[in-house]
């Protein structure tokens, strides 16, 4: 030791030396939620008959894909400390747009693109209002949530549009190499989202905006553009989810996606992303989404009544988030 000690060095000596590698806290932070999932799956496999069969697991994968895709987009928004309540309504609008296109003899790929684009445009509206007019995201998306639901009803006259010959039905019901197509789509969405967040400059900017918007601006990040873009991504994801939903039910339902925004937010938060922004991981969201799906399916297999299922789901969400915040700060009962 030299005669003088700079305060920082004092801190650093308390840090784990790099040779020892990351400790328990590091892995718990990253994999704790995975451990929760494994315990849950094991529990279900024991309690519920038929749970651990390939068919059932593929079914679960398909049933979670819509929520997981919504949650992927939502993760970007929440990482910037925003929120998007309108994604459920976007699911309905984009489903309607895609089905109406298909009914008008637009080829399947273009009908799908039309649905996704409709979602992206709705997201652009959210983004512009939030970043350039500096309105609170909660209020903006609460408003567009209502508007877009109204739009879905208006476009369908409040009636489902059923088309038994729907040309893009495979995106909801088909299989690729034995795997349901929605699951493949979900995997691609997560791959792209992971790449964007972890491997590109754009991803760093998303984290920076959520971590400290003013510091990001002064560091040269185009905060408004980044903020706008995350709502566009969330809208596009919702559009994709809406198309899959429409394909699944082979119709355009103006009531589609009601309440989905809350499930998506739950998956994101369950996955360890902070609502304060700047902290979280996309793969956590995927795991969060799977936990919610496993829980629902497991409870159904166990013949738990629907009302009780809701109770259990709520409790699990609060528990998971409680554990998450406990691991971030030491338990302190006094004061």
């Amino acid at each position: 030791m030299t005669d003088h000690t700079i305060a920082g060095e004092r801190h650093e000596t308390a840090w784990r030396s790099p040779e020892r590698g990351p400790g328990f806290a590091y892995w718990w932070d990253r994999l704790g939620i995975v451990a929760v999932l494994i315990v849950l799956v094991a529990l279900m496999a024991v309690i519920a008959p038929n749970f651990a069969t390939v068919d059932n697991l593929l079914n679960i994968a398909r049933s979670i894909s819509i929520n997981a895709i919504l949650a992927a987009g939502m993760t970007f928004v929440i990482l910037t400390a925003g929120i998007d309540l309108s994604v459920g309504s976007i699911v309905a609008v984009s489903g309607v747009v895609a089905v109406l296109s298909a009914v008008a003899d637009v080829p399947a790929p273009l009908a799908i693109v039309a649905g996704v684009l409709a979602g992206a445009v709705a997201g652009l509206l959210n983004g512009l209002l939030t970043s350039y007019l500096a309105l609170a995201a909660f209020i903006v998306t609460l408003g567009t949530m209502t508007c877009l639901r109204g739009l879905a009803y208006t476009m369908t006259d409040g009636q489902p549009i059923v088309s038994n010959t729907l040309n893009f039905r495979d995106i909801g019901n088909g299989y690729m190499l034995g795997v349901p197509v929605p699951v493949v789509v979900m995997a691609v969405v997560y791959l792209v989202a992971w790449f964007l967040l972890e491997r590109t400059r754009y991803g760093r900017h998303v984290y920076a905006v959520g971590g400290n918007a003013e510091a990001a601006r002064l560091a040269g990040v185009n905060v408004r553009a980044v903020t706008t873009s995350v709502y566009v991504l969330a809208g596009a994801c919702a559009g994709l989810a809406g198309v899959i939903f429409a394909a699944r039910v082979v119709s355009a339902q103006p009531t589609a996606g009601t309440g989905y925004e809350l499930d998506a937010i739950a998956a994101v938060v369950l996955g360890g992303t902070s609502l304060m922004g700047g902290r979280g991981r996309i793969l956590g969201t995927l795991v969060g989404s799977i936990i919610l799906g496993v829980l629902s399916t497991g409870l159904i297999l166990m013949n738990v009544p629907f009302f009780t299922q809701l109770l259990v789901k709520g409790v699990v969400i609060i528990l998971a988030i409680g554990i998450d915040s406990l691991k971030r700060r030491p338990l302190r009962l006094s004061r």
Partner: peptide, 8 residues
């Protein structure tokens, strides 16, 4: 407040 991302 203006320069750092304390969590990052």
């Amino acid at each position: 407040e203006q320069a750092l991302f304390l969590d990052h």
